[in-house]
């Protein structure tokens, strides 16, 4: 919404929106700079290197998730997030949350099959369905596989999922 306001005819409004967006983005980029320094100083196999890689993957993903990066910059952020996610996975290949992140990154770059594999691995490693299935359903939806999306949403119905998801589940389960 802030991005739309950047073209508002009133300059004050444009500038206010710009200031708000800029502050959000600045906070993330400052954190990225700090973590890059830490990562640069540590061996990537060490605990410190692994922790920095994980944080970097989170932060670059945040730029994408909050829609602060668009177009080529979004691609770049996805690429970086995946790069650091893979480094973190070298250390802890069976980390469920990292596998979920890898799935999200692959899905956002349009790589449906590897994304599916990563999502199922995250499930197998013990992440609750409520955290994984919505992303898997989104992926199927984007692939145009609506029946699969519906099936996954049906599965979710059996779970006490987040209240925020309930309207979506209800929509897909409507007879």
């Amino acid at each position: 919404m802030l991005r739309d306001v950047l073209t508002d005819p009133t300059e004050d409004i444009r500038l206010l929106a710009y200031g708000m967006l800029d502050n959000k983005e600045k906070r993330i980029n400052q954190a990225i700079d700090e973590e890059l320094k830490k990562f640069g100083m540590a061996d990537r196999q060490t605990q410190a290197g692994q922790a920095a890689a994980r944080r970097l993957s989170d932060l670059y993903w945040e730029l994408v998730y909050q829609e602060l990066a668009q177009g080529d910059l979004r691609d770049h952020a996805l690429d970086r997030s995946r790069h650091y996610c893979e480094i973190a996975l070298e250390g802890t290949p069976d980390d469920a949350a990292l596998n979920l992140r890898l799935g999200q990154l692959l899905s956002a770059s349009g790589q449906a099959e590897p994304a599916t594999t990563a999502y199922y691995k995250a499930l197998a490693l013990g992440l609750p369905s409520t955290r994984v299935l919505p992303y898997l359903a989104e992926l199927r939806f984007n692939q145009g596989k609506f029946a699969d999306a519906r099936r996954l949403m049906n599965e979710l119905e059996a779970w006490d999922s987040l209240p925020r998801l309930q309207p979506v589940i209800a929509f897909w389960n409507a007879k």
């Binding site: 950047l6 710009y18 668009q70 910059l73």
Partner: peptide, 10 residues
């Protein structure tokens, strides 16, 4: 181009 639109500027 619009402000803060790197893609359009590029």
């Amino acid at each position: 181009v619009n402000i803060a639109d790197p893609q359009a500027l590029a």
